[in-house]
Write a protein that binds this DNA or RNA. Structure first.
Length: 857
RNA sequence: GCCCGGGUGGCGGAAUGGUAGACGCAAGGGACUUAAAAUCCCUUGGCUGCAAAGCCGUGCUGGUUCGAGUCCGGCCCCGGGCACCA
């Protein structure tokens, strides 16, 4: 039963159908049901305290239209939603108020879920997931254990960004302009014990497999650039002080070795002190001190002014035995390659700049095609001044020089990546705890002897103050490891999370077989399995939960596995994944990495998680700027649903422009689509709420023109949904509605077909009108109407006449008109003929049904 | 600096190499109404013209083509990403 309101009362209609869908579990996805499956996924949101932003429903509406369309096309659709609910804001709130971040998070989830439901999306809410739910993060921890076991997780002391104000460590991506992204507080470098994931082990595959995915090119390129593969060689330069061993550099251009006139070490390079002569010690120490105080930002900011200092030592160039001075300069980074380079100022802009500044020699070894080409020359050319290699094209010289040096054992062809291992720990409370306990070596040996191979081949250890600790994983059966309640959510202040203060949770007697634990303050329980341990105090970053959530949706309640093999096989990976371009690199790269690890373990059957990806564009303020508090006033989903209805909001978000484009919001524009929905209502429903009397059961009530338009609309809307061109689909429906309004009578079947096409966009109105017009069952369960290609063909088409490419007139002509007849018509046409008289016909281009171009002289 | 996008009416935008401006907003005029709202109809890129009609017009500039918003070269501007990665 629909509502019986007389007007288009969306405030009554929309809640009615939302509760109808809820009650009937209308969007429940059955694993294994007949028919091809279709999995369409949104990037799940962080449930922030400020609720839904207008940008969220843009992507969600797009996927909802696709989900509803695919159901109508007979697909078994999985369309889920959940919460990426760990995150810094909840923790900061907890620090401020002293309440558990979980309670704040749950409140926010209630609010944002209400907002999302008010938009009428066809999510299967029975599959809702929450990354902070122990039943969820149990499997996040389980995946970590797999990474750990495979040797893909390790512990290292890393210089990380420490924010004294937030009392926490920040990742590079959380720092903007040298300040914390959250709050804008100053940050400094600190060495802290960190968990690191060996994503670099997958660099080659992460790069190569990009060719298999249907993603925006720009996103692929960003990932390629981030991975940053480059082929070159590691070359050993002997040092004059032989006792120090050789100096290893990485270069992509071994062919320019003859042009190497100096070398540079990063200030942090381990050989710096040993290579510094007594005479240079003062200068080098001062320089090291200066650069150590610089942030990365300053180091890049000052990029224009290169700085450095001579070490006083020399290396020997392996190709020609020349002495090469060794400099220390911070334009060489310790984190890439070997932290040392051979400088070829003639063919590298950075080296050239440095050499010019410090008056170092410049030797050209690649010939530029034009003699007046300026140095540094970085283009193609033949090798010169390079002894036996002269005359070779540089790529060929690169191969030969590398090979020749390799036979002498002083070079090795290598591939380097910009991609770094993934810093995977935070010193925070509100994250997944690591299922790791630190033991001494003897206990570790004893424990692993009793365990069935769930530890890495090489133990993960950490040494501090001369004591080496060994990382023992909890048995998978002991998961989830939950967060303990704590007295204070403030970080310990010394670089550890608040968990470090929770002694009874932290310091334990651990049963290495079961993972059971009792506080170490008590007596050691009886039995061999109990050892003294200290739990890991780091927690996982927010990325962890979002790295695999798309898998959990396939089987969200499974207590025995992250998802059953049947569910993973049946639903596979999303057929369409929609979310913001801000995740183009990190989230999408991290998730790909985990997916590949799970693939290697045989957990998932495919090598890539997101085969088709699409980024929705940002909704800008009315001024075209990024929406701010003032420019976004009133532009909230709640306010717009109250004033115009969810269907109008959905439609307008899709009508603004192409999905991928950044589009300014226009508060007057929404009235246009609102009027359109009112018009559809009026054409269906009369003043007293009865079916509009112009609608009859007589199929002859439709004009041929209206029927053609209906079939055009069915075709265009379907095509446009598949191409995610929602704006043009809507304009086509507007064209149809305008024709409907002008038609004196119309058949019920025609109106019903139109409502089916409209329903994915405006589902509440679609259901309401469908039912009132006597449509069978809910419209969202109906099969997408078929267009009849024969109905698309008109008898007459407008043929455009051109003379010398200029539009001179047009005329309705029968379909399939012969060229000769077309020319005759043109010559007879009053508007065209004056342009033809007295001129000789030179050429005719005829595109039947479109254009006749007569070239005259 | 490098890598991507993108520049079309007053505005958002539409156009398989084939009528540039669909659809919507805004604006102006009209109908209905006691009045308003709502709705409907008409006009609406610029210039010339009483009109018929003509000329110009998709950031600028060359080119390819019977025909270019669309393809190619050079340039300008805007937005996004990366940024000493050897």
């Amino acid at each position: 039963m629909a509502t019986n309101c007389k007007d288009y009362n969306f405030l009554e209609i929309e809640p009615y159908w939302q509760s109808f869908w809820d009650k009937n579990h209308s969007f429940r996805a059955e694993t294994g049901a007949a028919g091809p499956k279709y999995y369409v996924l949104d990037m799940f949101p962080y449930p922030s305290g400020s609720g839904l932003h207008i940008g969220h429903p843009e992507g969600y509406t797009a996927t909802d239209i696709v989900a509803r369309y695919q159901r109508a096309r007979g697909r078994n659709v999985l369309h889920p939603m959940g919460w990426d609910a760990f995150g810094l804001p909840a923790e900061q709130h907890a620090v401020k108020t002293g309440t558990h971040p979980s309670s704040n998070t749950q409140n926010n989830i209630v609010n944002i879920k209400r907002q999302i439901k008010a938009l009428g999306f066809s999510y299967d809410w029975e599959r809702e997931i929450d990354t902070t739910d122990p039943e969820y993060f149990r499997w996040t921890q389980w995946i970590f254990l797999q990474l750990f076991k495979k040797g893909l997780a390790y512990v290292d002391e890393r210089p990380v960004w420490w924010c004294p104000e937030l009392r926490t460590v920040l990742a590079n991506e959380e720092i903007v302009d040298g300040k914390s992204e959250v709050g804008g507080f100053p940050v400094e470098r600190r060495n802290l014990r960190q968990w690191v994931l060996r994503i670099t082990a997958y660099a080659e595959r992460l790069l190569a497999d990009l060719k298999d995915v249907n993603w925006p090119d720009s996103t692929k390129r960003m990932q390629e650039a981030w991975i940053g593969r480059s082929e070159g060689a590691e070359v050993l330069f002997a040092l004059e002080n032989r006792a120090l061993g050789p100096l290893k550099v990485f270069t992509t251009r071994p062919d320019t070795l003859f042009g190497c006139t100096y070398m540079v070490l990063a200030p942090e390079h381990p050989l710096v002190d040993a290579l510094t002569t007594a005479a240079q010690k003062g200068a080098v120490d001062a320089y090291k001190k200066k650069t150590a105080g610089k942030s990365d930002l300053e180091r890049t900011d000052l990029a224009k002014d290169k700085s450095g200092v001579f070490s006083g030592s020399y290396a020997i160039n392996p190709v020609n035995q020349q002495r090469v001075p060794i400099w220390i300069a911070d334009y060489v980074l310790m984190g890439y390659g070997t932290g040392a380079i051979m400088a070829v100022p003639a063919h590298d802009e950075r080296d050239f700049e440095f050499a010019t500044q410090y008056a170092l020699p410049i030797v050209q070894v690649i010939a530029a095609p034009s003699p007046d080409a300026k140095l540094p020359y970085v283009g193609d050319g033949k090798v010169i001044h390079s002894g036996a290699y002269n005359g070779l094209d540089w790529p060929e010289a690169k191969k030969r020089i590398t090979a020749d040096l390799a036979t002498r054992g002083v070079a090795k062809a290598t591939v380097n990546f910009k991609l770094r291992d993934w810093l995977f720990s935070r010193q925070r409370y509100w994250g997944e705890p690591f299922p790791i306990v630190w033991l001494n070596e003897a206990d570790y040996r004893r424990a692993t002897a009793q365990r069935s191979g769930d530890v890495p081949a090489t133990p993960v250890t950490f040494t501090s103050g001369g004591v080496t600790q060994y990382a023992l994983p909890l048995p998978a059966a002991a998961l989830p490891l939950e967060l303990p309640d704590v007295q204070s959510y403030l970080p310990s202040g010394n670089g550890e999370s608040p968990l470090a203060n929770e002694t009874s949770w932290l310091e334990i007697w651990l049963n290495v077989e079961t993972g059971a634990a009792v506080p170490a303050s008590g007596p050691q329980p009886a039995g061999d399995a109990w050892v003294r341990g200290r739990r890991e105090t780091n927690t996982m970053p927010q990325w962890a939960g979002s790295c695999w959530y798309y898998l959990r949706f396939t089987d969200p309640k499974n207590a025995a596995a992250l998802a059953s093999p049947e569910a993973l096989r049946y639903w596979g990976v999303p057929d369409l994944y929609v979310g913001g371009a801000e995740h183009a690199v990190l989230h999408l790269l991290y998730a790909r990495f985990w997916h590949k690890v799970l693939f290697d373990l045989g957990v998932v059957p495919q090598g890539e998680p997101f085969t088709k990806l699409f980024h929705q564009g940002m909704i800008l303020g009315e001024d075209g700027e990024k929406m701010s508090k003032s420019s976004g006033k009133g532009v909230t989903p709640d306010a717009l649903i109250a004033s115009h209805g969810a269907d109008t909001l959905r439609l307008y978000l899709m009508f603004l422009g192409p999905l991928e484009a950044a589009k300014p919001w226009n508060s007057q524009g929404i009235e246009g689509v609102h009027r359109f929905l009112h018009k559809v209502w009026r054409e269906c429903i009369g003043r007293e709420g009865e079916v509009n009397p112009k609608i009859t059961d007589d199929p002859a009530a439709d004009s041929a023109e209206l029927i053609r338009l209906l079939h055009e609309t069915i075709k265009k809307v379907g095509d446009d949904i598949e191409d995610l061109h929602f704006n043009t689909a809507i304009s086509q429906m507007m064209v149809f509605a305008n024709a409907l309004q002008k038609a004196p009578t119309v058949s019920r079947a025609t109106v019903l077909s139109f409502l089916q096409v409209l329903a994915p966009f405006a589902p509440h109105l679609g259901e309401e009108l469908w039912e009132r017009l006597g449509g069978k069952g809910p419209v969202m369960q109906t099969v997408w109407p078929k267009f009849d290609p024969t109905k698309l063909v008109a008898n007459e088409v407008k043929l455009v006449f051109q003379v010398n490419g200029k539009h001179r007139g047009d005329q309705l002509v029968p379909v399939g008109l012969a060229e000769a007849d077309a020319i005759k018509l043109a010559q007879a046409n009053a508007k065209v003929s004056p342009h033809l008289t007295g001129k000789s016909l030179k050429r005719v281009i005829y595109v039947p049904g479109r254009i006749l171009n007569i070239v005259v002289e």
